[in-house]
Design a protein around this nucleic acid. Structure first.
Length: 470
RNA sequence: GGCGGGGUAGCCAAGUGGUAAGGCACGGCUCUGCAAAAGCCGAAUACGUGGGUUCGAUUCCCGCCCUCGCCUCCA
């Protein structure tokens, strides 16, 4: 039976459609996801986007694509400059702190880091070259203040991604009143002229000392690393406008080629039904979540399963508890099925024909339908647990489930992380085993308490004691 | 004003032109020195609303209500 084609919603066309790679061999897929501005710790809303991007990346690999994935770090902008000045650190040192923090948090969430994660400031010459090209083509102009702007009138398709009718924009909404140096209100900055507040941050350019605008970064980095055209470009939904719209304009005005084939946007995370904001005190970082005693994989599960990537996801602590319980159920099953598969040399074909693999393919091929996938998983769990209870599951059948799980988890990224048992806990466990052997239950209970005090939970099963981190 | 996303049991959430996955919570049972956990089973009179099309609509069409976004800082 042929595998289904991987289909993904495309914001540009507003339809779910297959990924058709530019690669003539149809193997390599180029993926660019707009990365964070590293001026502070990223919050869980940011990470929802990156977890979704990771899901996409893993799904592509599941369908045997060779993924070439780039994510930039924005390490120069108003906020990074302000932060570094406040902390009295050179910009590079200041942003390095948050770059590392991001990577650490991403690891906590089992996010596969992109093949390349350039910092924007490592590619200033590419940005200058791109801007020069736009100036040469009269798609950009130098304003009276010495900054360079993109002229959106030079790009008739402007608004195509967001389906905006420029004549219909809400008048006066958030258009700054004082930007009279621009020809049109929609024109956006490509190169920002140095000002005193920038301190020692600045690069020489044909238009004098300054720094790149935000939008040009992604175009320049995408083109430099992946070529003039790419397959998939993604990010948070808020980037659709103006960021991605501007990327299209400046990229296509420069190259004359369609910039991106498939646009992938991730909806926002809400907390307790509300937008995250500092004033509501509901803005959590990954660290905050870990500090509350949850694990990265519990957060990953909550971010993946809370809603399809294209819908708002409401983060709650109740949701984290639900995630914890559901994950524990998966873990229990995994242990059981693994034990049951011991000794099997080959998976049972008839068990495999329960369409285990096919149901994985079908769910994920349909616009990353993660909840359908989880529904399938929990149905396997119930079915195989029942067979285990009844003693009717053979080792080769168990192996079939185990193999299906491995394949599934390559997408979910939820595999249990083995935790080393500290020696002092191991000592108590050994003592307890002896006490239990001697039917000294008073001592056994005492030792259980001692183990709990060290942060571990012990439970008694038919096969002896089982430890888990509490 | 323009454009778009939602409204499915107590909570979260898939999905389909033929009366609806899954998770959490809940109840029963099994297991168990106790505890905890786990497993199995179960219940739920769940598709915002008014029309229309249809043999049949939660699903398609029209209207309405509610809700959340975006419309030049933002994942």
């Amino acid at each position: 039976m042929p595998r289904p084609a991987f289909q993904l919603y495309n914001t540009m066309t507003r339809a779910v459609g297959p990924i058709v790679p530019l690669d003539p061999a149809g193997k390599r897929v180029t993926l660019y996801v707009c990365g964070p501005t590293i001026y502070d710790y990223a919050h869980i809303g940011n990470f929802r986007t990156y977890v979704a991007g990771d899901l996409l990346r893993r799904a592509l690999k599941h369908f045997d694509y060779q993924v070439d994935h780039v994510m930039q770090f924005t390490d120069v902008d108003d906020k990074t400059i302000r932060g570094s000045r406040e902390k009295n650190l050179p910009l590079r040192e200041y942003t390095a702190i948050y770059r590392e923090a991001f990577l650490k948090d991403a690891k906590e969430l089992n996010i596969q880091v992109a093949e390349r994660t350039p910092n924007a400031t490592e590619h200033i010459p590419a940005m200058i070259a791109l801007i020069q090209k736009l100036v040469d083509k009269k798609a950009a102009y130098v304003s009276d203040d010495g900054s360079v702007y993109f002229r959106i009138n030079a790009f008739p398709k402007y608004g195509c991604l967001c389906h905006l009718d420029l004549a219909n924009l809400m008048t006066g909404a958030r258009v700054s009143q004082d930007e009279y140096e621009k020809e049109g209100v929609g024109d956006f900055v490509l190169w920002k002229k140095w000002v005193a507040a920038d301190g020692d941050v600045g690069w020489d350019s044909p238009w004098g000392k300054g720094r790149p605008g935000w939008h040009i970064e992604c175009s320049a980095l995408s083109m430099e690393h992946l070529g003039s055209q790419i397959d998939i470009h993604g990010g948070g939904t808020d980037l659709r406008f103006p960021h991605h719209e501007n990327e299209i304009a400046q990229s296509e005005a420069a190259t004359g080629l369609p910039f991106v084939r498939h646009w992938f946007h991730v909806e926002h995370l809400l907390v307790d039904g509300q937008k995250m904001s500092k004033s509501l005190r509901n803005m959590y970082t990954v660290r905050d979540v870990l500090q509350r005693g949850y694990s990265g994989r519990e957060l990953r599960y909550a971010l993946l399963s809370g809603a399809n990537y294209a819908k708002n996801l409401n983060f709650t602590w109740q949701g984290m508890d639900d995630a914890r319980t559901a994950l524990a159920r998966i873990d229990e099953w995994h242990k059981r099925i693994k034990a049951a598969a011991t000794g099997a040399t080959a998976a049972d074909e008839s068990a495999a024909s329960l369409n285990l693999f096919q149901s994985i393919d079908e769910a994920i091929a349909q616009d990353l339908n993660i909840n359908d996938l989880l529904g399938t998983l929990f149905t396997w769990i119930r079915t195989s647990n029942k067979a285990l209870d009844e003693g009717t599951l053979t080792p080769p059948q168990a192996l079939a489930y185990l193999q299906a799980w491995d394949r599934l988890d390559a997408i979910l990224g939820l595999g249990e992380v083995a935790v080393a048992i500290p020696p002092e806990v191991q000592t108590l466990i050994d003592e307890r085993a002896a006490a239990r052997q001697a039917k000294n239950f008073a001592k056994s209970d005492e030792l259980r308490k001692a183990i709990e005090a060290l942060g571990w939970k012990v439970k008694d099963t038919a096969k002896g004691q089982e430890l888990s981190k509490s």
